[in-house]
C-alpha cells in the first residue's frame, strides 16, 4: 500500500505577500499616506539623493523615512541630522530585501498621524527587492553612472517594476563612457512607461525634477 499521501497546493509563494501588500496599500491610501519604495544597488547615492530631495519638499509635505539595511544605523542617523525629519532604521537580519510584513512592522514604529509621505529606502540590491511587493504606492530606483548604462539589460525585473528611474552622478558621465541615450533606450525596452530623470545629487542638479515628480505622486494619491 502507498505509504505517502499527496496533498495538492498549487500556490505561488508570493501569493500571501501580494495579499499583505495590497491590504497595506489600501490601508495607507485610506490614511492618506503615500509610501515610496526606493531601490538601487549599494553606493548609488540613495541617501544623498534623499537628503537633497527631502530638504526641497519638507516645507510642503510631512515626510518620514525608513532605512532598511542588513546592519548599522548610519543612514537613519545621517537623514535625521541632515533634514530633521522622522527617520528610523530597520534591520533585515541578513535578509536581502523587505517584504510587506516587514514594511508594516517598520510603519508601526513611525508616527503616521501627521505624515503625507513615507520613503522606504530598501536594501541596496538590484535583484531581490524587485521580487517582493512592499505595499508601496510606487516603486522608484536609482541607477548611478559608474554602474554602467547596460544595467537595464542585466537586471530587467528591477527596471520593469519601477515607475521612475533616477540616474544619479551625471557629473561623472564623461569619465565612465556612460551613454544616457543608450541607457534610456534600454530602460524603455524593459519598461516603456518608466519615467527617467537624470540628476547629480552632489551638486543638486536635476533633484528638483525628482522632487516635483514625487510631490505630484503624493498629491494624486491623497486625492
Amino acid at each position: 500500500m502507498e505509504q505517502i499521501k499527496i496533498i495538492e497546493i498549487k500556490k505561488s509563494v508570493f501569493a500571501e505577500n501580494d495579499k499583505d501588500a495590497d491590504a497595506l496599500r489600501q490601508e495607507l491610501k485610506s490614511r492618506g499616506v503615500f509610501l515610496l519604495n526606493l531601490m538601487s544597488a549599494p553606493g548609488s547615492g540613495k541617501t544623498t539623493t534623499l537628503i537633497k530631495t527631502i530638504n526641497l519638499l519638507k516645507d510642503m509635505l510631512r515626510i518620514a523615512v525608513m532605512e532598511a539595511d542588513i546592519d548599522s544605523d548610519v543612514d537613519a542617523v545621517k537623514i535625521k541630522e541632515a533634514t530633521g525629519i522622522q527617520s528610523i532604521q530597520l534591520h533585515t537580519g541578513g535578509m536581502c530585501h523587505l517584504d510587506a510584513e516587514m514594511t508594516r512592522q517598520g510603519l508601526d514604529n513611525l508616527d503616521l498621524k501627521d505624515v503625507d509621505l513615507v520613503i522606504l529606502e530598501n536594501v541596496g540590491n538590484l535583484v531581490c527587492p524587485a521580487e517582493f511587493d512592499t505595499g508601496s504606492a510606487c516603486n522608484a530606483m536609482i541607477l548611478s553612472v559608474p554602474e554602467g548604462h547596460d544595467k537595464p539589460l542585466k537586471y530587467p525585473l528591477m527596471f520593469s517594476v519601477c515607475d521612475l528611474v533616477v540616474i544619479n552622478k551625471m557629473d561623472v558621465a564623461p569619465y565612465f563612457d556612460f551613454d544616457l541615450d543608450k541607457c534610456k533606450e534600454y530602460i524603455h525596452m524593459r519598461n516603456p512607461k518608466a519615467r527617467v530623470i537624470p540628476i547629480c545629487a552632489k551638486t543638486g542638479e536635476g533633484v528638483e525634477s525628482f522632487a516635483e515628480w514625487l510631490q505630484k505622486q503624493v498629491i494624486d494619491w491623497k486625492n
Binding site: Q3, I4, I6, E8, I9, K11
Partner: peptide
C-alpha cells in the same frame, strides 16, 4: 514560477 505544487505526508 515559484510555486508549491503539493506536499507529501506519511500515510498512517
Amino acid at each position: 514560477e515559484i510555486e508549491i505544487k503539493e506536499i507529501e505526508v506519511p500515510n498512517n
